[in-house]
Design a protein around this nucleic acid. Sequence first.
RNA 1: GACCCUUUCAUCUAGUGGCCAAGGAUAUUGCGUUUUCAUCGCAAAAACAAAGGUUCAAAUCCUUUAGGGGUCGCCA
Length: 461
Amino acid sequence: MTTTRFAPSPTGYLHIGGLRTALFSWLWAKKNEGQFLLRIEDTDLARNSQDAVTAILKAFDWVGMSYDGEALFQSKRFELYAQYVEQLLNEGKAYKCYMSKEELTALREEQMAKGERTRYDGRYRDFTGTPPEGIEPVIRIKAPTEGTISFVDGVKGEINIASSEVDDFVIARAGGVPTYNFVVAIDDALMGLTDVIRGDDHLYNTPKQIVVYEALGFKLPNFYHVAMINNEQGKKLSKRDGATDVMEYKTLGYLPEALLNFLVRLGWSHGDQEIFSVKEMIALFDPKNINKSSSNYNLDKLLWLNAHYIKNKSNSELAELLVDFGVDIKEHSKRDLILNATKERGKTLVELAEQVNLILNAPTEYNAKNFKKAFKEDTPKILALFMTLLKEAELNEVADYHKVIEAVVEQKEIGFGKIGMPLRVSLLGSMTGSGLDEIMAILGRDETLSRIEKAINELNT
RNA sequence: GACCCUUUCAUCUAGUGGCCAAGGAUAUUGCGUUUUCAUCGCAAAAACAAAGGUUCAAAUCCUUUAGGGGUCGCCA
């Protein structure tokens, strides 16, 4: 059975790049009717927090992803790891190293000066003498000294790393706490992972983990290393580049389906298709179509997708979502009229809420510039006629309001702009926005009249 | 510095030796629709990092150079 995982270290919120690799893993598991597991990598006891775990789960929940079974915490498995350390020690595949941190630093500086790749020199690999006093040893694993470590990456193809590049790395710190590459290999194997999809910043960890797999006799999974997401300038994505926390996108008024659609197309494609529902993603996703190169993060497309998903969302769902943005029209009798008039004008829920508020709340002040542009000498007379006709009109639907405007245009023999602009400024205080007849149908006769009167009074003062 | 990965329009990408004087999408610009804005429709502009090979034929294969990214922890 296809088994994938997401394995974050709980040191902060869920990052946008993390969500993409999680999405890829999740899609691949779902497509194959397999399992998607969650493992919390909290072996660095000083840096992780429960809040971070909660934050990650909250983000998963928001986008509608879920994991199978219980989340696994590495911090609860130290005994298990210790057993494997013991096993390797007994089998002579690992050894105690008594090198001090000072000595290590000195060695690295020396190697750096010589232009070599820094690596542990294996000085305690075959040590049988009396250990130095006062040094608590670390445990190092015996990595191969000759040849190359090779594996086939599902994204990048064959990867060959010379064994000379992989040193006898530490698998247990002084004090016994195991290290990352050691526990990852053990857990990935024990959890039965068939496919490991992760960022390509882990590419260099893979040969190390292979050393562990082989020492312990575990079967290797398929590896897929996905290139990073960079900012628009092609540099590493940082907080300065806008939202990096997944939950920020919720606050900014993005729909989770838009965010997922955006992320799935960053580094993956299916021909020319741009719009993918989650269902389609699951049906079509295949890691073999993941791109080798890193992609740059660009908000324009996300915005476009978000507008698309807002336009296509039902009014009842939109009304529900808008509550978080301070607009509650769930029980409003003209809910559909309001949303139909506004949902093509909001690229985010924040903007949509603004559009709705613009109609719902009478303008409190008028922009002098707008007034000057919209109101000409004959405008008061035109508006007066409009009000007269509106009072008498039979008003049942949107089209009825339109008829009133048409009647004014006809009687006064003027263009639509002559009545349209002043009317718009009177009703919204703005030169742009939804259709006038729609706005008036939402407001109704009384509110429409009152807003026009208010505007005229404002003009006269 | 060493090692690894990578390079198609501004951006996301299609492309697996002939279907490519390179296709789609976003963004940009113009036109149309619209009383306005938005939506929508149509159109324009816009790329194979460079140089050498291999081949009848190269965006695609090889070599070199250059750019970008990553890694070099008793972090993960």
